[in-house]
Nucleic acid binder design. Structure first.
Length: 199
DNA sequence: ATATCGATTATCT
DNA sequence: GATAATCGATATG
């Protein structure tokens, strides 16, 4: 994806990211997953966004140019992967929440500490932002500030021509502020979308 | 199948 | 000192 792709509103970028492929290029080979769930965070106008209250050391990436990686640590346990949106000076981001594994499933299983024996185990590989990050080896030390649009990067988003037949929106997960805004986007019916399964 | 709860620490007030 | 863009384990119907 180009810089132009990420210059837009996080809501537009978020929807456009569904179906794209998130790739970690390891020396031993690629790890990749098709993006099936994201959330938009709108910065100044969004009380749930880390950038709502202005620039800090942690959220600085979101105020910088679009297409850069913002990684934050949550609940004493998990890394979460985001990409900055909007032009320099305007904060906003998309949180990667879930993907469908494509390449490097063995390595992702090892990274997650999961022995694959059924579909239910497979789902746990990359469903949920903390799990997805762990599967791809995302940490702040390694990835924060990376250019997601650079061909030289070991973390990129690619378009392989696939397009989801449907996209759905819902409220975001795990937040208390601006909880009613429908800024979560996902591929309905995809097995790897996080959260309880509804029928 | 859904509900509740503890873990664990960076960040901000 | 409180909180959090989560996860997985445990309990309960």
């Amino acid at each position: 994806m180009t810089r132009e792709f990420f210059i837009r509103d996080p809501r537009t970028v978020g929807r456009a990211l569904l179906g794209k492929v998130l790739v970690r290029r390891e020396k031993s080979g690629p790890l990749s997953a098709r993006i099936v769930e994201v959330e938009a965070y709108l910065g100044k106008t969004d009380p749930a966004s880390h950038s709502y209250r202005g620039l800090t050391a942690r959220n600085a990436i979101m105020f910088g140019p679009p297409g850069f990686v913002y990684v934050y640590f949550i609940y004493g346990n998990h890394w979460c992967l985001n990409v900055s949106c909007w032009p320099v000076g305007r904060a906003g981001a998309v949180l990667f929440r879930a993907g469908e594994p494509i390449e490097g499933i063995e390595k992702m299983s090892a990274a997650r500490g999961i022995v694959l024996s059924n579909d239910r185990d497979a789902r746990r590989l990359t469903s949920g932002p903390g799990n997805l990050s762990q599967a791809l080896g995302i940490t702040r030390e390694r990835d924060n500030g990376k250019d997601l649009t650079s061909a030289a990067s070991d973390l990129v988003v690619l378009d392989d021509g696939f397009h989801p037949s449907k996209i759905a929106a819902s409220v975001r997960i795990g937040i208390t502020k601006a909880a009613e805004r429908p800024l979560r986007y996902f591929v309905p019916g995809n097995w790897f979308v996080s959260g309880p399964k509804v029928l």
